[in-house]
Design a protein around this nucleic acid. Sequence first.
DNA 1: AAGTGGTCTAGACCACCTT
DNA 2: AGGTGGTCTAGACCACTTA
Lengths: 241, 241
Amino acid sequence: MGSVLLDEFAHSDTSYRRVADTIRDRIIAGTYTPGMRLKVPTLCIDLAVSSNPVREALQQLQGEGLVVIAPNKGATVRPIDARLIREIYEVNGILDAFFAGRAAQIATDEQIMELIAIHRKLEQAMLKGDVPKRADNNHQFHSLLGEISGNREALTVRLRHRNLMRAMRMKYGFSADRESIVLGEHEEIISAISARDVARAEYAAKMHCLRSCDDIIIQASIEPRPSATQQPAKRLTATSN
Amino acid sequence: MGSVLLDEFAHSDTSYRRVADTIRDRIIAGTYTPGMRLKVPTLCIDLAVSSNPVREALQQLQGEGLVVIAPNKGATVRPIDARLIREIYEVNGILDAFFAGRAAQIATDEQIMELIAIHRKLEQAMLKGDVPKRADNNHQFHSLLGEISGNREALTVRLRHRNLMRAMRMKYGFSADRESIVLGEHEEIISAISARDVARAEYAAKMHCLRSCDDIIIQASIEPRPSATQQPAKRLTATSN
DNA sequence: AAGTGGTCTAGACCACCTT
DNA sequence: AGGTGGTCTAGACCACTTA
């Protein structure tokens, strides 16, 4: 029987998942920047699907904190201001201190080896100036720390915040000397974990976060010309419930 | 021209928001219990809407952590096992310690008065055995602590976890003597904040969380046996404390 | 007063079951 | 095979914003 609709069997996964993955990647990659309108008709054409999967994907991304949906007004990439950055890094600092402290308690020697291996790859990527690989290795470093803790829930929260901050980094970048400092901070964290020094590991992780926060705020305050989208309007921050 | 559809002007908000609110309330109230299937056709009939708003609401609730959606298999109320409870309370303990410690630093005298007022109302509700009011006042107590910190992002995370645990409490309840213990723990937190003793406030809040976690696990008398799914974890995260 | 875009319905398609 | 229910499309309705 001939199918009325698409004969392509491009159904490896559900459509709304692929749409959500695509939009998420574009937000993290900086293709869609914070504050940008995400119009359903445009996305429908671009991704060759109808409105329903797009709308479901946007709802899901709102749940992840990457998108804000205002009733009858549509979706925008979550706008990020200095306050939100500070709040997120405050939470990140608390969680990362927990991760590092827990790692100092329970990490196996193999896991510590793996941390060091990732750290070396990160070092290489920085030397080569390979920005995407740099971001990926940094992500792996902190993900492994989270996994060692065994707390998936905490890791989920942390990952969502990381995605938001990656979007910021893609828009504003790092300050010139931040990269070499990051390496030193990672080494201090690894050193503390290896020494099984919980307090030092917690402190090192927290400081790593604080300095990253300071850096991103400095970078972001370098006035990026307002893009040619619509007027800023008011910030809506429609917090659910 | 006559409207083809409903002429009722029952459009105070969007449909998918009302559906999400309804389902969320029912999960928290225990009408829909963890693990229960949420079938779209049933919800459509029950709530008198079509599938699209229901599906969008489910996606949103998945983002909030109350619902799990499996591709081509549908939605279920998020199943909760002992591991998830421990993970959530671990995060809660960290966040509540932060909230209480921050409150000890920056709470105004008026805010502390308000905390005490809520505490008294909670006391009254417990004496009267008014369970819904009890839950509501307890929620207010911890929400105010979160608001004092000024960190909305942390508060959002904490609120989501609170919703999940309220669903658990609605299903399993408290142990007999837990209520009076809660009052004492809240008083200790208030006392530490009033004394501006950061470390004591953090410790009191963390202990409050840990005891609540222990209580709910006992009430649920959950055996964390691995279910029919695969068991990838080899090393169990040493049962904390 | 159009137009744009968000929202919702009805129905078709199709994946995963049961029998 | 048949049924149940998840998924997607097409199109209608409607809120908000242009001019």
